[in-house]
């Protein structure tokens, strides 16, 4: 059963086998949770929103025509729900272009030693948490969820070039902070 494709599982759920939806939940829960946690910067909110996302997806399965991949469709629900939550928290949500121009200067805000960790993995995780929500969403989708730039652009509703710009900026920030840290002496 675990080897079934998303579409096969969805077809089965549509036929009335509701329990099969748990396969979809188990398949996406941790990846979507990682994305939400990094965007919302709050574990409790992330889990609450994730529950809503799965319920929304279940209720809307009838509308899912299979033109896009289920994962893309589902992550769009997750991404939009996170933005709605952030908006309700009166957080600043900027338009596509201003978001690309989004200024985040973690280097001046934080000393590299703030992120000083024994492990480079832990170091990177810490900096991702500090990235603006859209940038951390892109990093999570690209690296953790292994989505293509096209899929990310589809999920976020922005152009491919803007996704690339945001991805490169996030990567550069991580690199610059890494180079400033003591860890770089060990690795480079």
């Amino acid at each position: 059963m675990r080897n079934l494709s998303d579409q096969e599982i969805i077809d089965s759920v549509r036929k009335g086998n509701d329990s099969d939806y748990s396969i979809i939940i188990n398949r996406y829960k941790n990846k979507a949770f990682s994305m939400l946690k990094r965007m919302l910067k709050n574990e409790f909110d992330a889990e609450e929103i994730l529950q809503d996302c799965f319920l929304k997806a279940y209720n809307s399965l009838i509308n899912f025509k299979g033109e896009a991949k289920f994962s893309t469709w589902f992550y769009r629900i997750v991404y939009n729900s996170a933005l709605t939550k952030l908006s309700s928290q009166k957080r600043k949500i900027e338009s596509e272009m201003s978001s690309v121009e989004e200024h985040f200067d973690l280097q001046s805000e934080h000393n590299a030693d703030d992120f000083e960790k024994k492990d480079i993995q832990e170091f990177i995780q810490d900096i991702i948490k500090k990235l603006p929500e859209r940038h951390s969403a892109i990093i999570t989708m690209f690296y953790l969820n292994e989505m293509s730039i096209e899929e990310i652009s589809d999920v976020m509703g922005i152009s491919i070039s803007n996704v690339k710009v945001m991805l490169h900026r996030s990567r550069n920030t991580l690199r610059d902070l890494f180079l400033k840290s003591k860890l770089s002496e060990e690795f480079i």
């Binding site: 941790n30 990846k31 949770f33 990682s34 480079i120 993995q121 990177i124 995780q125």
Partner: peptide
């Protein structure tokens, strides 16, 4: 290193 990033668990 980003490619081997661990996912969070619910």
């Amino acid at each position: 290193k980003l490619f081997v990033m661990k996912e969070d668990e619910v």
